[in-house]
Design a protein around this nucleic acid. Structure first.
Length: 646
RNA sequence: GCCGACGUAGCUCAGUGGUAGAGCAACUGAUUCGUAAUCAGUAGGUCCGGAGUUCGACCCUCCGCGUCGGCACCA
């Protein structure tokens, strides 16, 4: 006699076990039609599930946020059926819903190509139109294995074999097609709708392990209706326009070329942007009590052996040798061992701790070719790196200070939001459990102190200590780790860093490895995408263009430009003979934030006509006032706050 | 590194087994013009590199390199 509690608190009683479908129908024909699935005591379930006991039920309709995941999951099943119908002999593996869509991994000797998409989509639409109900079946383990083995579905058979014996093995049947699946599903294939699109093919290793066979993965996107799908596709187009590689080219910021794979050629405007970011970071670090240093690029193998990099990181290191010497040198992939060398000069006292040693350290790492991506994943990059040498007691307060600095920097640079991941002890690690407990607790305590919320990344910490990762998202929705903070008890030991404590004895400092931007290359890539090239005035590589209407105004335009430059602004003077319309367009396309138009009127009145990027209004104001105002406006946020503005 | 796609003028792209085209940009000339493209002309190419097939290859095949999308990697 189940009593069903509905979201509005009302209770319906039934004489015996009922299905969700029956319950929905008892409420009304509208709901019966709209309900795709339900939440049974908070857990998603098929509408056809039988409810035997008292329970709470929430029906999921197409409008529900939960519906999207189901549409996508079901779409993956429809895709798999379509592919097997069109390409006999293809083995199915797994096909989950993901952010914005779904994918399905297939095993086939010949991988799929986008050429196949039209046929597959057509078949999928047929299957949707057929609207076969999803039928849940519980199978005996051995039967399921035999079934898949008999069909040559080796991957599925392996999946079943690896399921825990406690797991109920469920299969879902849609018409003649059947697949191992945990469920739940909607009522039938028709509920998928037609607002889906296959997007791309890609290789993917079976079970994500590169030693396993390569599968052929088909990605698709699916939405509630065509309007949502169109909006998503439009969004992708827009995101593509923000791609830092495109903007970098359009705005003439940098380029990459074959002869220096993974290294950036910064052009004048790109380098100006870089320098603005670097100067800003340097001021922030100076103000936060860091001491900047500079350490060698080429360092003898022996130091890398001592630090452990030669053993753990060698395959990522560029090695350099000279003809006349036997010495083997490596381009540094990290700055930490060099910083310890500075720390080790002379005798350190506990009074010097925490000692915050910063470096804009140029590092080289031999990244796998497939990992390279624009300027965001490169082989030569410069970190805003620092190492904080401190006592164990100082770990938490130093972490809290760091997080506060990082949040402030991100805010200034236009990233009010970021995600934090806490990576704790990995299976293979150095140090005792006591040390790890201490390090993790200190980090957690520091997060609490700093009011940081984080998600846990279990087992993903560095071998020497737990770490925090600060993640920003690019225009195309990819996440990039920028900031990091790692607690390290190992390197000070390996490289014999020590200080004299209050007690007169020698102690090991703890090292905090930390970066805020991560690398200038990656961060600037994200910054370009964040602003789509339309930087706030203080960051813009060209801040003002002075454009003339007639050549009579040329001398005055030069005077205006000189005055702006004297006030510290970055100015381009356009004395070309194009019409003002063409000039406005050209500099707007270049995302120059401010255009000062000068013609005869302005030259005579000693004024400028100010036009802001994207705006239509213009403002005429006296030259001196314009210079003062723009200079104030172009002041970096950290200098504004302290009132040191020019 | 793995799977797949791609590589033609500075940029964006078209093209065919018979030695290559457009638009924009560049350059030259004319135009002195009031807020997102003035007009005309000129010049510009080892069709990524190497080998092979062919009477003949930018096109077909193979091998490299690079880029792009994923996967793996990101100490």
């Amino acid at each position: 006699m189940p009593a069903i509690t509905l979201p509005d608190g009302s209770v319906r009683r039934f004489d015996g076990p009922v299905t969700g479908t029956t319950v929905a129908a008892s409420i009304g024909p509208g709901l019966a039609k709209a309900a795709l699935a339900m939440k049974l005591d908070g857990k998603a379930a098929d509408l056809s599930s039988v409810i035997e006991h008292d329970a709470s039920v929430v029906f999921i309709t197409r409008r529900d946020p939960d519906a999207l995941g189901m549409i996508r999951h079901d779409a993956a099943h429809v895709l798999a059926e379509a592919v097997q119908a069109l390409f006999p002999g293809t083995q199915v593996t797994i096909g989950p819903s993901i952010e914005n869509g779904f994918y399905y991994d297939f095993f086939r000797n010949q991988p799929f190509s986008v050429e196949d998409f039209a046929a597959i989509e057509a078949k999928m639409k047929e299957i949707v139109a057929r609207n076969a109900p999803f039928e849940r079946q519980v199978w005996a383990r051995e039967d399921a294995i035999d079934f898949f083995v008999a069909r040559g579905e080796n991957f599925k058979a392996e999946l079943v074999r690896d399921l825990p014996t406690t797991e109920t093995i469920t299969m879902y049947k849609q018409g003649d097609w059947i697949d191992l699946c945990r469920g739940p599903h909607m009522r039938g294939t028709g509920d998928v709708g037609t607002a889906f699109k296959l997007m791309k093919v890609a290789g993917a290793y079976w079970r994500g392990d590169h030693r396993n066979p390569m599968l052929s993965r088909i990605y698709g996107t699916a939405w509630r209706d065509q309007k949502e799908l169109d909006a998503y596709l439009t969004m992708l187009d827009e995101a593509e326009k923000r791609d830092h590689r495109r903007i970098g080219k359009d705005m003439d910021l940098f380029h990459l070329q074959e002869e220096a794979v993974g290294s950036v050629f910064w052009h004048p405007k790109g380098w100006k942007l870089y320098r603005t970011a670097e100067s800003y970071m340097r001021r922030r670090l100076d103000a936060a009590g860091y001491q900047e240093v500079k350490t060698p690029q080429l360092v003898d193998r022996s130091l890398w052996e001592a630090s452990g990099h030669w053993e753990k990181f060698r395959e990522h290191m560029f090695i350099a040798q000279v003809p006349d010497e036997d010495k083997v040198l490596a381009l540094k992939p990290m700055n930490c061992p060099c910083h310890v060398q500075i720390f080790r000069q002379g005798v350190r006292s506990y009074r010097e701790l925490p000692l915050r040693m910063a470096e804009f350290g140029a590092c080289h790492r031999y990244e796998p070719s497939g990992a390279l991506h624009g300027i965001m994943r490169v082989r030569a990059f410069t970190q805003d790196d620092a190492h904080i040498f401190c006592t164990e007691e100082q770990v938490a307060p130093e972490t809290a200070k760091f997080v506060a600095l990082l949040a402030s920097v991100y805010r200034d640079l236009g990233f009010p939001e970021f995600r934090v991941k806490f990576s704790d002890r990995p299976p293979l690690r150095a140090g005792t459990d006591e040390v790890w407990d201490k390090a993790e607790d200190a980090l957690k305590e520091a997060c609490a102190l700093a009011g940081v919320e984080y998600e846990t990344n279990p087992g993903e910490g560095a071998f020497y200590g737990p770490k925090l990762e600060f993640v920003l998202r690019d225009a195309i929705g990819r996440d990039w780790q920028c900031g990091t903070l790692q607690v390290d008890y190992i390197l000070p030991e390996r490289l014999d860093a020590e200080y004299v404590g209050e007690d007169g004895a020698r102690h090991r400092p703890v090292m905090l490895h930390r970066a805020i931007l991560g690398s200038f290359e990656r961060f600037l890539g994200i910054l370009i995408e964040q602003y789509a090239g339309r930087f706030p005035l203080w960051l813009a590589p060209v801040q003002v263009t002075v454009a003339t209407i007639v050549s009579d105004a040329d001398p005055y335009a030069e005077e205006v430009s000189a005055a702006l430059r004297a006030a510290g602004l970055s100015v381009v003077t356009d004395l070309g003979r194009e019409k003002i319309n063409a000039k406005i367009r050209e500099h707007s396309v270049q995302h120059v934030p401010l255009i000062l138009v000068v013609g005869r009127k302005e030259a005579e009145a000693r004024t400028v006509a100010l036009r802001r990027l994207g705006g239509e209004a213009q403002e005429v104001l006296p030259l001196a006032e314009a210079v003062a105002r723009l200079a104030a406006e172009a002041t970096p946020p950290d200098l504004k706050a302290s009132g040191v503005a020019a």
